[in-house]
Design a binder for these strands. Structure first.
Lengths: 333, 333
DNA sequence: ATGAAAGCGCTAACAA
DNA sequence: TTGTTAGCGCTTTCAT
């Protein structure tokens, strides 16, 4: 292993000069700097992370807590976090709470000790989490708290646009299959739906109730949707939409001719479904990246353009309509 | 920050005793051990990883390299790795090569520095990877190398059973949509297919060629399958099967009545598809866990029952048939 | 602009 | 069984 000492010896300077040449190039004479970097190249020196971290008191990693890594939504999020962190020279410790809110605090407290900060995706029990965070920088994803920075998808806008799309196709009775009641993002979606409903004349939004945010949820809601007289149904997310699709197919209902179906999130699921789902694209990977960026600013590692307000910045991510094969004009009666 | 010194002082022992009490409890008197652990609890001491790394050369983490975290297959793998590692008190650093074999060596060399060992999932360019591994323990997943331990899914058996299922339904002409030519696991699948083909009289296996292991691949192969006169098609994996389903639906072909379709891997995709895919379940999570276990044995952290042959143990994981809605008896002509 | 030197918190000889 | 001690490779004052 090549160390600072080796480089220093070869370049005939002291180790502190080498250290400076690498981390604060402007504090070293041009000639010296060049000589040092040349030797570094030649010897193939790479700094020992452990040593520099020990010295500086940092760990060089961020923690990420997700409910379920197998859920395509969180897989994408993890991917975004991962890639941005890597760029910034940090590593990511991922903890999977297995959809169990009770695991969160425990996982969190583990992470807190091993990382410089934590990204919390869709936390279920913020209050409990708080206890163990103990001052560690934390960023919330799809959740908000007055004292914490956060990045969330604009689900309200997502619903407004979804309705606009269906309305443009000529639908006037639209059903909504909701997600978990306690979910903050379901609340946002409903707000968007209400907004859209008020905006158009003669448009009816039917609330089908709360369902599990999975395929099963959609399956449970399908007959309700059918019986509601709606010509289009918006699902809480893509998974739920897939469940709808499945039962509708079994009932012999042609999608989109007899019923239009929309998902949300544009996860892999929307592309896998048959017919492919019209859905709202939300940049999950971008959310992951944004969360890392916020963390970086918060902990002052980014030169920082003006530095964030204080601790608690809230960032909202835009959404976009993706039209595929599951929506069409309603059939003339 | 609580350090060893703090604990030592409070417990009235030396720092080395504390260190030992934690990492080699049997080398410390029972009473002392209890006193120390009590103080550790009380003070909330957690070892400084950077320091112990620096000193011991170990990191307490494993690296995992996957081609794509968004692919449900690798997401599950990551989940398995994650959970077993957690149990063993280790953390996981995940690197995503973004399906680009050229990223691998770079990611790997980063990981090698930060981990005690590396798990390589479906590596594309083992030769290049080798250069940077430089003696770090490595476990291959779905790949093999004479000098490295590995765990792979038994894709040969998977195909044998898939064919048996279709055969039992009455199919006699079965098409196979292959994956990447260079893929080792595609070779295994073909071997299984051949085996099965030879085993039954009057059974024809048609090779449709090599396709991208994604939805697009299946879409590309669909018309070929249709034109081949086969009554059933086996796809390289679930994603490819979904692609088939999509085009078949567009062509008005009823699955499974007119064409049976099988996927492979039993990823989320097979459940999301319409109709739900009959597929071969392979315990991907188990593979991840097994890989961690092997690493643990290899690096001698598990008391080890007899210690692995040498460096290179190869473990094979079983498969299982999952029947859903995409297969049925062929229609009488 | 450069060098000397003091540790960061911990592990692992080596002593006792 | 326990304690003493010497660093691991680096950053960072403080001199020069």
């Amino acid at each position: 292993m090549v160390t600072l000492h080796d480089v220093a010896r070869a370049a005939e300077v002291s180790i502190s000069t080498v250290s400076r040449a690498l981390s604060a190039p402007d504090k070293v004479a041009e000639a010296t700097r060049r000589r040092v970097t040349a030797v570094v190249q030649e010897l193939g020196y790479t700094p020992n992370r452990a040593a520099s971290l020990l010295r500086s008191g940092r760990t060089g990693s961020v923690g990420l807590v997700v409910p379920d890594l197998e859920n395509p939504y969180f897989a994408s999020l993890a991917k975004g976090v991962q890639s941005r962190a890597q760029e910034a020279g940090m590593s990511v410790l991922i903890a999977d709470s297995d959809e169990n809110p009770r695991h969160e605090p425990e996982l969190l407290s583990q992470l807190v000790q091993q990382t410089d900060g934590v990204l919390l995706a869709a936390p279920r029990d913020l209050a409990a989490d708080f206890g163990v965070m103990d001052g560690t920088p934390a960023i919330l994803i799809n959740a908000e708290h007055p004292d914490l920075a956060s990045v969330s998808v604009d689900y309200e806008e997502a619903m407004v646009r979804a309705v606009a799309h269906l309305r443009a196709l000529g639908h006037t009775r639209i059903a909504y299959v909701g997600g978990p009641t306690r979910s903050r993002s379901d609340g946002q979606r409903r707000a968007g739906l209400k907004l859209a409903g008020d905006q158009y004349d003669g448009l009816e939004i039917l609330d089908l109730g709360a369902f599990s945010p999975k395929v099963e949820g959609g399956e449970a809601a399908a007959d309700l949707a059918l019986g509601s007289g709606a010509t289009a149904t918006i699902a809480y997310n893509d998974l739920v939409a897939v469940g709808l699709l499945r039962i509708l197919a079994r009932r012999g209902v042609d999608v989109p001719a007899q019923m239009s179906v929309m998902g949300c999130d544009d996860t892999l699921a929307s592309q896998l479904a048959t017919p492919a789902l019209t859905t709202m694209y939300v940049d999950i990977r971008g959310a992951g990246e944004a969360a890392v960026n916020m963390f970086l600013e918060l902990s002052g590692r980014t030169p920082g353009k003006g530095r964030v307000s204080d601790l608690a910045e809230h960032r909202t991510l835009p959404v976009q309509l993706v039209v595929r094969d599951s929506t069409a004009a309603p059939r003339r009666a």
